[in-house]
């Protein structure tokens, strides 16, 4: 029987990864440094709770999937997930190891609970995970990953209620596993940003702080807000925040916020939150 240790929500952007690597030509370096400094307590927390598995609900950015077939929900089913080449070459980090028995067990449980995901044998992972992963865990990563990719690039995307339900089903699937897995549930996406049109570059730190203040204990208030309304005030790509509902849906009512941090380095609101299950101590 597995146990859910807690959840984490975090923003992702390609520039975050390039700034972390110290790549030339990155602007606003001081603000990126503040973001990386702000992540230090989360790195410490993950090290302390020592998960055996991390389930990551994330979105691909046309770096693995293309439009010939686009799954709404897809689950990685292999023992290794290479880094995707997004068009500028791979960064100097290893691939992520998976655990096929764990993945298969979770998949069986999810399907039994109404989530019929696409099974991926050769999933390659882009900045949706790689932009923040090296900031939070030193490689070689001492943990097994189970990536779940959600369509966030083509409307219609899954609803907040559906993602919340996915989280709930994920929690059941972890409890159902035969081994003693200790699982951290991560959701990544957002926060405020928009990358098309004359609103390119729009951010909304006030909204981001509002979202961070509600997700732990007043998430029901967030769920009731149509994603279109969030996209109007915080940019269309803030719609990725719907994936954070899957993380929250995987947690119980007995949780505490360990830490949160927010800054807007350039064109994307960058926030992180760490939430711990109190009954697992």
């Amino acid at each position: 029987m597995g146990v859910v240790l807690g959840g984490m929500g975090i923003a992702h952007t390609p520039t975050m990864g390039h700034a972390y690597d110290g790549r030339e030509g990155i602007d606003f370096k001081d603000r990126w440094k503040q973001w990386f400094k702000g992540l230090a307590p989360v790195k410490q927390w993950i090290s302390e709770i020592a998960p055996t598995h991390i389930i990551v609900v994330y979105n691909d950015h046309l770096n693995y999937f293309d439009f010939s077939t686009y799954p709404t929900f897809a689950i990685g089913m292999s023992d290794h997930f290479p880094q995707a080449d997004e068009g500028w070459g791979k960064r100097a980090y290893p691939g992520m190891d998976g655990d096929v028995d764990f993945s298969a067990s979770v998949a069986e449980s999810l399907v039994a609970n109404g989530f019929d995901l696409t099974f991926c044998q050769e999933l390659e992972i882009d900045h949706g995970i790689y932009s923040w992963l090296p900031c939070l865990i030193d490689h070689p990563w001492p943990v097994k990953f189970l990536p779940i990719a959600v369509n966030m690039v083509m409307q219609p995307v899954p609803t907040p209620a559906r993602l919340l339900a996915l989280g709930s089903a994920l929690r059941s699937s972890v409890v159902d596993t035969a081994d003693d897995s200790r699982v951290l549930i991560v959701a990544t996406g957002g926060m405020s940003h928009q990358i098309t049109g004359r609103r390119f570059g729009l951010t909304n730190p006030k909204f981001d702080q509002f979202f961070l203040s509600k997700i732990t204990h007043e998430w029901d208030e967030l769920i009731s807000i149509p994603m279109s309304r969030i996209m109007q005030v915080a940019g269309t790509e803030a719609g990725e925040l719907a994936m954070w509902y899957a993380m929250r849906g995987a947690l119980s009512g007995s949780v505490r916020e360990v830490y949160s941090f927010h800054i807007r380095p350039e064109i994307t609101g960058c926030g992180v939150i760490a939430i711990e299950e109190s009954n697992d101590k």
Binding site: T203, N204, P205, F207, F210, I225, R264, E266, I267
Partner: peptide
Amino acid sequence: LPCESDLLPQDIDS
């Protein structure tokens, strides 16, 4: 940059 809105979802109508 930075380009910023300070509206919350409850500040606007549909």
